[in-house]
Each structure stands twice: as C-alpha cells, then as structure tokens.
Amino acid sequence: MNSVTAQPSLRFDGIKPIHGDECTIKSNRPVNGEYRLMVLAASSKLLDCEPGQFFHLLCPVTGDLHPYLRRPMSIYGYYPDAGELHFLYKVTGEGTSALATLNPGDTLNVLGPLGRGFDILPRWTNLLLVARGVGLATLAPLALKARRLNRRLTAICSARSEDVLMSLDYFRSLDVDVIAVTDADGTSNVDHLRFIIERLIREDGIDAMYTCGSNRILNLLQAVGKTHDIPGQIALEQQMACGIGMCQCCVRAFTRNGAIVNERVCREGPVFDLQEAIGC
C-alpha cells in the first residue's frame, strides 16, 4: 500500500494533520512472556505526538492470519531525535499475532497520531500514575513529558507477578519514584493501593492522577479523587473501525452534569476525565 499522496487540507481549524505512512521495522522482540516491543523507523511528521495518543496499525495478512480492520495501539515511545516510534503490545488475537510475525526490515502501515492525549496543567506539579498490565504502554510516555516539564512523578506499577512487571528501569531512568505491586505477593489489592495512595497524598501531596484500563483502579481513583478533590484522567479502550471519528463504532458512555453522554474513544478520547468515565 502506498503512503499518502495528497496533502491534508488546512481547512480544519487548529487541528493537526493525520498521516498515513509505511514504516520500517527496526526490531520486534518479546520483552517477557506476554509482551512485545516493536520499534519502527518513523519520519518526523509522524512523531509530533502527545502522550496518550495512539496509532492505527494495518496488521499484515500472513499465513492463516487475516486481520482486516486496523488495530489501535498506544504510543509507548516517540523519539523525534532518533526517528523512532515504539509500541508495547500483548499478543491477544489475529491482528496482534500478525504484528508479532514482522521482522526487522519489514514494513508496517501506520496511521496517526490519533486522538486526544493526556493533559499536564501548569498547576499540576505532583503527578501520580497508576498502571496495570498493558496500561503501562499508554502511560509510559507521560513520564518523559513530566520530566521535560519538570514535574514530580510517582508511578505505581501493578502486574500479576514480578516477571511481567515492565518498564521499571525505564521509569527509574527518568527519575520517577516507582512503587511496584503484584498479585503474587499480595500487594496489588485495592485496599493496599488505597493505603499507598493516601500516604502519598499525606506526605507529598498529589495534584493529578493518571490511569488506564483496569476497572478496579478506575473505581479506586474515582473514590480517592472525590474524597481529596484531586483531578485525574483515564485512557480508555473500545473497538475501532476508522480510528479517526467517521464511523461512530467506538463510542462509550460517560456521566457529565448528571446525564449520560456518548463519546468516541478515537476522537474525544482515548483520554477522558477520570470522574466522567464509566467502567465496563
């Protein structure tokens, strides 16, 4: 498939263009038993990204695998200097299995950057990120941005067991305070998480909370946010077809001003206000 031929029109006020491009795979390796890291060589126009945004990937048709629609994938890392775009993904079905077959030198058609990313408002100095499983992929680039903006960041990373905890070194290298919790050692339950978060609030104060994915964590952070009046944002998932706002297949329900509203995860999201989100 060709890359873009026509330039986007600039008649869409204040909104950046979306690019479709063919990228070469630099590497695509397992990072543990469950997740893989894919590094693509990407042109600079693709790398004008915000943490929390995503790309829509055209997974290859190969062997018995016939993915048809694109697959949404969070930006795990974007490095304009190195010309690299990183994805951290879990192989779950046809599309991600097909992604896993790509070798260095192969190409992948990507579309993006898409959606609305995380905000770091000027008055938010102490940030807390709570990530579970692959949610980490979505939250990791926040660490880089927080550092660039000189904000203090604490990351609570949760996983089933020690061996599938990811990115701890990555976070530490960015001066993030990392707190690792696992199901295996019984530290990841909601009561313990709440205890840790309450302590952080008492000791250092928290101005904003970020999370992704897990319903348990969503409920917990909503409760903590209400009690202590701390704002937050959550990145949500929903099945997508177009990824850019045309088809309306990716809607989810939110509560706003006492009413239920439907918004498109690909467009108004994937990052939403923590208190407005409804778990599934």
């Binding site: 330039q7 986007p8 869409f12 263009p17 979306i18 850019i244 706002g245 045309m246």
Partner: peptide
Amino acid sequence: GTFSEELAQVFDL
C-alpha cells in the same frame, strides 16, 4: 457513514 469532516485532516476534501 464512512466519511466525516475529520477526513479533512488526512487529505484535501
């Protein structure tokens, strides 16, 4: 149903 203003971000409509 397969088109909207957003596509203007991709090409000149």
